[in-house]
C-alpha cells in the first residue's frame, strides 16, 4: 500500500483524521500528534493489513524557525513489503514524545540517540541515557543553535 492508501485505510477503519503530506521529492509522510502517537504506532504494527513489523529508522529533527523538535519514524512491513514515514512534532520548550520502545526494540538505541544529540525526551523509555557523548556532556550537539562547551574535564575542546 502507498502512503495515501494507508492513510485512507486508517481513517476509514479507525475513524481518524490523518492527512498525508506529499513531498515533491522522496517519500510522503503522515504527521501525527504526540498524544495519539503510541495508539497509531500500535495500530500500524498490529493491524492485519498493515503489519509494520520493522522500524527501519528513528531520527530526531530540529526545526529551528518554528522552535520545534520532531521525530521521523521510517516503518517497513516485511510481510506486505510496504513502507510508511510518520512524523511527530513537539515544541522546543517541552519536547516530550511517547516512546515506542515497547513496540519496536529498534527504538531503544535510536531514541537514546535522538535524546543525546537533539534533546527530545521519550516518555516511557526504560533507560533514557546519552548513547554517544559522555553522560556529563553539556547540551545537545545536533541542535542548530548548539554552542559547544569550551572544555570537557579540564581538556580544551579546541574552540
Amino acid at each position: 500500500m502507498t502512503t495515501e492508501e494507508i492513510t485512507e485505510y486508517l481513517n476509514r477503519e479507525y475513524g481518524g483524521n490523518l492527512d498525508p503530506t506529499y513531498a515533491e521529492a522522496g517519500d510522503s509522510w503522515i504527521t501525527v500528534s504526540p498524544s495519539v502517537l503510541r495508539e497509531v504506532a500500535k495500530t500500524l504494527r498490529d493491524d492485519k493489513n498493515l503489519q509494520f513489523n520493522n522500524l527501519m529508522c528513528l531520527s530526531g529533527i530540529h526545526y529551528q524557525k518554528e522552535n520545534e523538535l520532531g521525530v521521523a519514524y521510517h516503518l517497513h512491513s516485511t510481510i506486505h513489503d510496504h513502507k510508511l514515514v510518520m512524523k511527530v512534532r513537539v515544541p522546543e520548550d517541552n519536547p516530550v514524545v511517547p516512546s515506542v520502545e515497547s513496540l519496536w526494540k529498534t527504538a531503544n538505541w535510536h531514541e537514546r540517540e535522538a535524546y543525546d544529540l537533539v534533546g527530545i525526551t521519550f516518555r516511557g523509555h526504560p533507560g533514557l541515557l546519552r548513547i554517544l557523548t559522555p553522560q556529563d556532556w553539556e547540551g545537545h550537539p545536533l541542535r542548530k543553535d548548539y554552542e559547544q562547551q569550551e572544555s570537557y574535564r579540564n581538556v580544551s575542546t579546541g574552540i
Binding site: 550537539p141 581538556v155 579546541g158
Partner: peptide, 15 residues
C-alpha cells in the same frame, strides 16, 4: 575535525 568537530580532541598530545 580541527575546526568543527565538537567532540574531537585536538591532538592526543594534549593528554
Amino acid at each position: 575535525y580541527w575546526e568543527h568537530g565538537y567532540h574531537v580532541l585536538k591532538g592526543v598530545d594534549k593528554v
